[in-house]
Nucleic acid binder design. Structure first.
Lengths: 191, 191, 191, 191
DNA sequence: AATGAATGAGGGTTCATTCAT
DNA sequence: TATGAATGAACCCTCATTCAT
């Protein structure tokens, strides 16, 4: 098999393993078995477990692209973005579990914490920028604090990845996201 | 040393270990070293690692009592409650980390998931009840969806426990909580 | 409790433990529990596990007194002796099991091997003496080899202590003993 | 090294360990040392101690084949069989010790007791059949009780495996076996 | 490119034993 | 006399990793 393909196979096996058994439950032997190769082959492609985890993390980043739509009013862009994220979390349990595992692992892996922190910063900045733009354009209530709103959104999405909260309440979480947006977009005059 | 005292010491050592290295990074030998006893002593007090973890979990439940104040207007009660929770998470890093570890562990421990799920249900019900009461009493905007609001709060608090988000942004998180409350309590007429 | 009584209690508990779980399955904690005392008390009365085992061995010697009747013809004495031994083994399972355990332990305990060897030698000598006397007195067939006969008896009795052979076949073993004696005592002329 | 060879090596090391230190004295580390490998290698070939013991038991069954000769008169067949067995026990101390250990272990291992019991039953049945045939063919004294004789033989051989009896008296045991056979085959008329 | 064989380090647990009271 | 508390040593087993092929 082509070198890159086999590498991908093993990476996907690791990703699935992380989602299923967690980071610390990840065993090189299990990854090898899932990929249908010998354990030494895993070490042939990935020098160490850490390397394999790094590859799985890159796969996660590829899979979880929460992009802000480029076009539309701030309201439309925010709605599409947030509903897109929550729907992804609701529908892709493997991805959700992997996200939670990775996020938690940052507590013991400073380098990972740095990477995740940077991604968070970027996301927060995007959200703040969008909110500010909406404020400027008069899309929503002027009192909104962009930084606070951004943190609310990110914290909520992270909390939604936790094992117990979302699985039984997808409808409530969608409603919560919509309500959050509606708060922003409600014309004070209408209330 | 008195039996109960030594037991508590070891339990606290386990709790600290969980907060620092995570659940699966918890080593009986490390707990023993932290408590200043031999590893066999840990097994003298706790028959198994599982027993020790159960004791550490009970300690966590004792430490994290997020009670709803009994007196005051719904607005006052909600504010005190939510600010109390977020301040606890901000100030007690050990508790926050342990909470995150426990929450994540639920992914692989059905019994723990059941317990946490039940605690979540209770918290959500309390929040919904309080919001409904506020609606009835005209404390805030009638359009608020109690269930969605409750889920927003719980998800946000859970997200705030994650390793990367809160530590560098305590002020933003407090502001986010306050803004959430203010949304509820803002008299539409004022906007 | 009087010192001697408590010692006996613990010794009996050890004996029962050996019969039930075997020598290597003997645990000081189990002995203490069976005797209803603290494990440290066992060490108070017996300095070490080895000492306790020695006491249990002495108890075994007291319980298993296979004495040769003093009176009667050689035939009568031999019959009474051998049937007495086999009946003891059949009826007292605890004793039989303890005997087997002790005998086996001799393989790893030279001092015990010496003691058991001495007891065996004495028994063999008694048996040979009795057979020789019978031969002299014309009680049975002259061709009998006293040493071979004695070894046959002792080996057979030891084999009867093994866990699997006797329990289901007490009648066969009694018959075997009787046939052995009858071979000796059958007057050639009668055959 | 080839997989099967190393497996055999480790199995033989375990067998020798059982013969030397007994079943419960068997240590994975000792087996590894005797085989000249790391302890993890033992677990690489045998998933658990139990598996290794099972392999050692199979080796014992292979080594101890006490087959009844197919040809000859009943007398000849019985003699060859019994002298073969006793000579094996006399000359192969390791096998004898392992047999004793296995037999004793049956006291605490019901499944092993079942297997050994079945092997005993088969042996006893063979012996009874041979004796009955001899009786029918007039090879020996008609009064002989086949079941009692068979039990005598088996108990004796088991007793001969015990640590203390045989080692110092191989000649007596051979003589005992021969005498047992001679009793059967002695023509009453000759006595 | 891929693997079977082998290992060092470290994991939870058990046990006889000690010691202060 | 008797014990609860504490321990060092040892046990079985697992894991990521290495290496010759």
């Amino acid at each position: 098999m082509a070198r890159a393909d086999r590498r991908d196979e093993i990476t996907r096996a690791a990703f699935a393993g992380i989602a299923e058994k967690g980071f610390e439950g990840l065993r090189m032997r299990d990854v090898a078995a899932r990929a249908g190769v010998n354990i030494a082959t895993v070490h042939y492609y990935f020098g160490s477990k850490e390397d394999l985890i790094a590859a799985a993390y890159r796969l996660l980043q590829d899979r979880f692209k929460a992009e802000l739509p480029a076009d539309g009013t701030p309201d439309e862009r925010l709605s599409a973005h947030l509903l897109g994220v929550i729907d992804t979390l609701i529908s892709d349990a493997e991805l959700r579990r992997a996200l939670a595992e990775i996020a938690q692992r940052a507590a013991r892996d400073p380098e990972l914490a740095r990477q995740i922190g940077a991604a968070e910063d970027a996301w927060l900045a995007e959200l703040r920028g969008l909110v500010r733009q909406g404020v400027r354009e008069g899309s929503w209530a002027v009192e909104v604090d962009p930084a606070a709103f951004a943190v609310t959104v990110v914290a909520m999405m992270k909390g939604a990845c936790m094992p117990t909260l979302l699985p039984g309440r997808p409808a409530e979480l969608r409603a919560a996201v919509r309500q959050l947006i509606s708060w922003l977009t409600t014309d004070p005059g209408e209330r």
